[in-house]
Design a binder for these strands. Structure first.
Length: 465
RNA sequence: GCCCCCAUCGUCCAGAGGCCUAGGACGCCGCCCUUUCAAGGCGGUAACGGGGAUUCGAAUUCCCCUGGGGGCACCA
């Protein structure tokens, strides 16, 4: 058997849809696993989609995900001659015909005829419209028979030819539609396996018919992946969710975590170990094992994956990768990541779900005054807060070594004096110094903040009581 | 409406006739650890949509129903 050739063929809509990323990943896995070639093809036969900026987004995002292609990107907008040739051939052979029906007319006829099925009725089949402007070209679909194929994940699929309408293969402006471009390219590019989303399943018969009419050899083997759905089991939509991979990057997800998570949708490793390097997934992956039912894109689970990957990073790597997420922080110093952050980084790393969580964990180190969360302060200021702050200030003033251990011991002693556990005793101190009730371990935070600033904040808080 | 596809815990995946008292993971709920929060440890909750058929035996095979999804553009 010759080496497989697969393709990822996105329409450049301005962002990479997570479902598209999943499709790309599966194609990539299959290619790597089988020693095949992964072709990238941009489906931009629609002029509105054929813009370099839109295409760049796709390329950059695939790159970010670590999904590299072996060939391409081919652009359908640059291959128009092939499609023209195919359309003309079909026209010459009577397999296609011109049609100038307006959409409204088609609909009106369907209504008048009382047909329940909307769609084109073959009105222009025998009109033999001459070449010229204003007419689209439609493919003459068979009136009877069935179109069947074996899908790697779906199994045997069968369509009645009578259910197929005469679809448009060339628009009135002369541009080809997806269906011809798809048939021609898959054939011309020697694609052996067409792996894509289930939403394209019922375009297969049209493409198969086209390939046959054009005299191409055996069609590719199809594999239709289950759709990614939301909590209501609907296809992920741009309106309601973050569907752009770019959004997840901005939200601080790591590409390796994201890709690993994507691989577990519609497929699972035989040993049940889900979090693992892509290289292992390549070894374990099999197209035949892909699930048929829609898969819910569960961000909670993605979070878990991301946390695991985040904590597994070396400290240096973590700092390097989290740094861009401080770009929007006006308080971040020019030399960021500075020494203060480096000292805090391991503690921050333990507590992040995404990289974007980091700034809020250390902002108090850089702000002149911490931003006090009123609700948190309200709680912390109750009870013996005044006494704890007074004694805490006194104890911290007397420290000759400003180190976490010493601070810990000092505040623990203050707490004991007032019958408070350390957890209780540290509450007012934490809010006073960091502005929040939760955050990295307190004494390490104070150590890095420094004696002077810590005391100033404690005094300010005491004054506020 | 028509066509196609799908159906195991809330969710993702195991399960390819007896190994299932249905397994793992995320979530959720407890408990432990603890300097808050996380992380970590331990335990728990929770599913084969319904009905027939085949079989000694069905989550696993077949049929029907129900439910869900996708598609029916001069988008892809």
């Amino acid at each position: 058997m010759t080496a497989p050739r697969v393709r990822f063929a996105p329409a450049p809509t301005g962002y990479l849809h997570v479902g598209g990323a999943r499709t790309a990943l599966v194609n990539w896995l299959f290619a790597r696993k089988t020693g095949g070639t992964f072709v990238l093809r941009i489906e931009d036969t629609d002029a509105a989609l054929s813009r370099p900026a839109l295409i760049d987004v796709v390329l950059r995002t695939l790159d970010w995900l670590g999904i590299g292609w072996d060939e391409g990107p081919h652009r359908q907008s640059e291959r128009l001659a092939y499609y023209d040739l195919a359309v003309n051939t079909l026209l010459d052979e009577g397999r296609a015909y011109r049609c100038d029906c307006a959409r409204d007319d088609v609909e009106a006829r369907a209504r008048d005829a009382g047909r329940k099925t909307p769609g084109y009725d073959g009105y222009c089949r025998e009109r033999a419209l001459p070449p010229g402007a204003g007419a689209a070209v439609r493919f003459r679909t068979p009136d009877e028979g069935t179109v069947e194929f074996d899908d790697v994940v779906r199994g045997h699929v069968s369509f009645a030819a009578s259910d197929l309408v005469d679809f448009v293969i060339q628009r009135a402006d002369g541009s080809p539609t997806f269906l011809v471009a798809n048939a021609v390219d898959d054939a011309e590019m020697g694609i052996t396996h067409a792996i894509r989303g289930e939403d394209l399943l019922n375009t297969v018969p049209s493409v198969l018919l086209l390939m046959d009419a054009l005299g191409y050899g055996p069609p590719p083997t199809y594999a239709h992946l289950p759709l990614l759905v939301d909590e209501a089991r609907k296809k992920l939509s741009k309106r309601r969710h973050s569907v752009a991979v770019e959004d997840y990057r901005e939200q601080g997800y790591l590409p390796e975590a994201f890709v690993n998570f994507l691989a577990t949708l519609g497929w699972g490793p035989p040993d049940g170990v889900e979090i693992r390097p892509l290289t292992e997934i390549v070894d374990l992956f099999a197209l035949e094992d892909v699930t048929k039912a829609g898969a819910y894109f569960d961000v909670k689970k993605l979070d878990h994956f991301n946390g695991e990957y985040l904590r597994a990073l070396t400290p240096d790597d973590f700092v390097a990768r989290v740094t861009p997420f401080f770009g929007d922080a006006t308080w971040a110093p020019p030399d960021f990541p500075d020494e203060r952050f480096s000292r805090m980084a391991p503690l921050v790393q333990e507590r992040c779900v995404t990289l974007a969580d980091a700034p809020a964990l250390v902002d108090f180190l850089y702000l002149d005054e911490p931003e006090i969360d009123e609700a948190a302060w309200g709680k912390a200021a109750q009870g013996q807060a005044a006494a704890v702050l007074d004694d805490g200030i006194a104890a911290f003033e007397g420290l000759d070594e400003w180190r976490a251990e010493a601070l810990h011991a000092a505040l623990a002693e203050v707490g004991e004096r007032h019958g408070l556990k350390l957890g209780k005793a540290q509450a007012p101190v934490r809010v006073a110094v960091t502005g929040r009730s939760v955050g990295p371990p307190l004494f390490e935070s104070l150590e890095v903040l420094g004696q002077e600033r810590t005391l100033a904040r404690l005094r300010a808080a005491r004054a506020r009581l």
